[in-house]
Design a protein around this nucleic acid. Structure first.
Lengths: 227, 227
DNA sequence: AGATTTATTCAACCACTGTTGAATAATGGA
DNA sequence: TCCATTATTCAACAGTGGTTGAATAAATCT
């Protein structure tokens, strides 16, 4: 102030450089996931993510290209565990019913505590966001193919009703499962006229039974090809 | 430019006031709905909404309190037609199957060309946005109550399986229907291994058949109380 | 016609946005 | 121990965000 700033006082010439050490990019991703979930795609600010991760905003640009690429990195991280797991279920040879249970297990891992973030992803999908969609279609296609395979096998073996179409049932199965995982926990707290138990397990069980009755072949073939 | 702006030239003292006349608030709401759908809650700027509606941003603050209130007004407009329609279905006395068809008709009207906007609404629900949730819980509760009634009646009449719980089936029915309406159109264009027909009608029919098989009582009572 | 109310626009405010270039502390190798 | 690389921070830029107060045209009323 009073000093007339003789030539070029860089204001505080000795305070830069690391203070926290070794910030793992995965910590930034964790922070980003929460902030995206809470604020949405556009509402999530780089500064908020950095604050939550405990570092400077500029650091994000050292580890990632920009905000969108943080988002796509997040997608990649999530699908990298889901896709192979589903593919291995599709290649196992258990009964269709058992495979569905395994698929549900994998999906349950995928959705864990994550409704907010997945709502953002859904937004990007339905509005076909240019920068995100390319990174989404590939894993989603793989997920859908794996599920389609499972249902196609069930059709071929006669475990499932012959009037079904595997790719469509795959849509229905995954879509409705995720829907229940997201919406029931979000809504049931506000519905006063409900039984006094946790809704989600009840809804999940009822949905699975319902769905199975809807697709199972009422006259199943002999369980093993028996003379 | 060249004029040195003598003392206080209010820059252009005669250009204010209306140019377009009588901008209906509903036009602003239409514009807002598209922009919210395309850009998300935080990404939708007041300026973008105004541009789309063809008016000045400040006008939005004459007709509405602020951005959030535009959003809640939008919600109100949508639910004002859905809720009574569902309630009247619940009070009619057709067969349960017929009532479900009517519910679907009402829901189809509700979802029409609107996936983007509903994705935003879903985001607000799952993240429990403070300013929006209060305006959502009431209509959502009414929707859920109406559907619950329909299923409860079906249970009482023996049209539906006795091991179901009406409020939960209500969740499943509405949730999964909306899910299919949103996700199938958004995803199927990117799935190369699909039959070459429009997916949505197929998926919708298959889902309804599946759902009905899942909830219908396999030993239905006499259609009218007989002797 | 004149006055009042209603509907609209303009210009500006400040807080915050994504992003970058330069400065620098910590780390690891020679 | 010195040096090069890596990881981090600071400060700033230019743009955009929601929002408001004053100005004013159009519509309505008397």
């Amino acid at each position: 102030m009073t000093r007339p700033s003789s030539s070029k006082p860089p204001v505080s010439p000795k305070t830069r450089g690391p203070k926290k050490i070794r910030m793992e990019p995965s910590i930034i991703l964790d922070a980003a996931q929460t902030v995206f979930a809470e604020e949405g795609m556009a509402g999530a600010s780089v500064r908020a993510i950095a604050r939550r991760a405990g570092c400077d905003p500029a650091l994000l640009y050292y580890h990632f290209e920009n905000k969108e690429q943080i988002f796509t990195a997040l997608l990649e991280r999530k699908f990298k565990v889901l896709v192979p797991r589903l593919q291995s279920v599709a290649q196992s040879r258990a009964s269709t019913r058992q495979k569905l249970d395994q698929i549900i297990e994998a999906l349950a891992e995928y959705v864990k505590d994550d409704a907010g973030f997945r709502a953002v992803v859904r937004g990007q999908i339905v509005q076909g966001a240019e920068s995100v969609t390319p990174h989404l279609v590939d894993p989603l296609r793989q997920v859908h193919e794996a599920l389609s395979d499972v249902f196609a096998q069930g059709l071929a073996s006669g475990e499932l009703r012959a009037d079904l179409q595997a790719p469509i049932v795959a849509f229905l199965f995954a879509g409705t499962y995720l829907e229940i995982q997201d919406l029931v926990p979000a809504l049931s707290p506000h519905m006063p006229h409900l039984p006094d138990q946790p809704m989600l397990p009840l809804a999940e069980r009822m949905w699975l039974d319902l769905f199975w009755r809807g697709i199972a072949n009422p006259e199943p073939p002999s369980r093993r090809p028996r003379s």
